[in-house]
Simulated assay, not measured.
Amino acid sequence: MRVLIASRIYAPEPGAAPQRLAAVAAHLADHGHEVEVVTARVPRALRGTEREYPGVRVRRAPVLRDRDGFVRGYLPYLSFDIPLVWRLLTARRADVIVVEPPPTTGAAVRTVARLRRIPAVYYAADILADAAASAGISDIVVRAVRRLERYVWNGCAALLAVSEPVAARVRALGVPADRVRLVGNGIDLGAYGVVGPAVQREEPYALYAGTASEVHGAAIFVEAMAAVDTGHLVFLGSGTDRAAMRRLADQIAPGRVHFLDSVSPAEAAAWFRGAAVAVASVKPTGGYEFAFPTKLYAAVACGTPVLFTGSGPGSDFAEASPFGASVSYDIESVAAHLRAHFAEPATPDERAQLAAWAAGTVSMTAIAERITDVLADVVRPGARGAVGR
């Protein structure tokens, strides 16, 4: 089987999507399949850190990035998606194309796949129109994004759902149930683990790693720090709420909340290992309750207890994890758990126990196996897909 993977982000960039795609590519190559990745040139800070994997060919091209170094926003998306059409049209024919969000990339792949009569498989990590609606974006934009997503979904042979809530939402929006395949999500245990360097600070710290946007409501952790006498809070990453949270922190918890740029997975793992607790949130009643913050996977893989607040599947995961907790979305509930973690951090034995639990629960290997099975189903003789069949 020859597989093309189209994504604006790929390893060594940090985040769940690059790690998942790299794991899928490696798993396919290890099982004798031919893999070609069509992606963007890495940001300047990560150049020279790319690693080749036997059997996986990675083709990169220049792309427009925002001031934080991300391919994010309309112009950066289009700077990747428009050339992608030509890159896919001229690529050697594949048996199947795997495409990562956003839906603009999905639309480019869906169009080329139909022209070349190749089945396409889309990874439904979230529902962008729902996220836009919950962020208060205008109805005109939300409707346009909804139409774009449906164009992609209706033209793909299969949708890979990150969670059952996402799968249920996609089915509710009209995608036939037999085309929605639940594969889940996980973490690369080779990049994140309990053994390795840890960032040490004079006082214990809580870590929020990843995107902080309107749907996450992460400002509650800043507000909680104002009610906690000791410890610090570190935000590692980016997001649309970051500037507002920085201003809030300067007002109510000066000198105790720190905002750092995104780093490589190895550096992020060091921050996780040193943290007393890793925090995550999904704002309740925000219309995005099905979202799962994948930062929880990285935390438990590093043996770091997790604290979740808000709505969605992250709550059940935090409660199920050893030494983890899910609390009500209010300042005092969050502050009480931060105090407890700062006062009595997990022991090395407890961290090892949590990491062992993670190894059997969130390994990316199982996710790669499920995705490979879906691709095999799509390309088998007689398969009925929406594209190329």
Rank of each mutant, 00 (worst) to 15 (best):
residue 260 L to R: 13
residue 313 P to T: 07
residue 205 Y to E: 06
residue 328 S to E: 14
residue 374 V to T: 10
residue 218 A to E: 03
residue 324 G to Y: 02
residue 293 P to R: 05
residue 68 D to M: 09
residue 337 H to T: 10
residue 343 A to R: 13
residue 337 H to D: 09
residue 239 G to P: 05
residue 336 A to R: 15
residue 387 V to Q: 12
residue 209 A to P: 05
residue 112 V to S: 02
residue 107 A to E: 07
residue 306 V to G: 09
residue 375 L to D: 04
residue 252 I to H: 02
residue 338 L to N: 10
residue 136 G to E: 00
residue 251 Q to L: 03
residue 119 P to F: 05
residue 9 I to Y: 12
residue 309 T to I: 12
residue 69 G to P: 03
residue 227 A to V: 08
residue 53 Y to N: 11
residue 373 D to N: 07
residue 285 T to N: 11
residue 310 G to V: 02
residue 254 P to D: 11
residue 301 A to C: 13
residue 92 R to G: 15
residue 339 R to Y: 06
residue 342 F to R: 09
residue 249 A to L: 05
residue 208 Y to S: 08
residue 80 F to N: 01
residue 246 R to H: 09
residue 377 D to W: 01
residue 199 V to H: 08
residue 10 Y to S: 06
residue 284 P to F: 05
residue 383 A to V: 03
residue 344 E to N: 08
residue 256 R to E: 09
residue 184 G to D: 07
residue 213 S to D: 11
residue 187 I to Y: 02
residue 34 E to I: 13
residue 129 A to K: 04
residue 149 E to V: 06
residue 84 L to T: 01
residue 33 H to A: 15
residue 110 R to K: 11
residue 236 L to H: 11
residue 45 A to P: 03
residue 15 G to P: 11
residue 223 E to I: 04
residue 310 G to H: 03
residue 330 D to R: 13
residue 109 V to I: 04
residue 49 T to D: 15
residue 229 D to T: 15
residue 211 T to E: 11
residue 138 S to K: 00
residue 165 P to L: 02
residue 11 A to Q: 13
residue 172 A to P: 06
residue 153 W to T: 04
residue 330 D to T: 10
residue 363 S to V: 07
residue 81 D to Y: 01
residue 343 A to S: 15
residue 376 A to T: 14
residue 302 C to K: 04
residue 63 V to H: 02
residue 228 V to C: 12
residue 331 I to S: 02
residue 372 T to A: 15
residue 326 S to M: 04
residue 129 A to V: 00
residue 14 P to I: 10
residue 194 V to I: 14
residue 124 A to S: 13
residue 201 R to E: 14
residue 296 L to A: 09
residue 377 D to H: 09
residue 27 H to F: 12
residue 276 A to S: 14
residue 356 A to R: 14
residue 43 P to E: 06
residue 153 W to L: 04
residue 366 A to Y: 00
residue 181 R to I: 04
residue 50 E to R: 10
residue 227 A to W: 09
residue 216 H to I: 08
residue 240 T to S: 12
residue 270 A to S: 15
residue 75 L to G: 00
residue 172 A to T: 07
residue 114 R to F: 00
residue 182 L to N: 06
residue 243 A to L: 02
residue 377 D to E: 15
residue 357 W to S: 10
residue 57 R to T: 15
residue 389 R to T: 09
residue 124 A to Y: 01
residue 275 A to P: 05
residue 330 D to N: 14
residue 127 I to C: 04
residue 330 D to P: 01
residue 68 D to S: 10
residue 154 N to Q: 12
residue 369 E to R: 13
residue 295 K to C: 07
residue 305 P to W: 11
residue 185 N to D: 15
residue 87 R to V: 00
residue 174 G to N: 05
residue 353 Q to M: 04
residue 322 P to E: 08
residue 266 A to F: 02
residue 132 A to D: 01
residue 164 E to G: 01
residue 185 N to F: 05
residue 241 D to N: 09
residue 135 A to T: 00
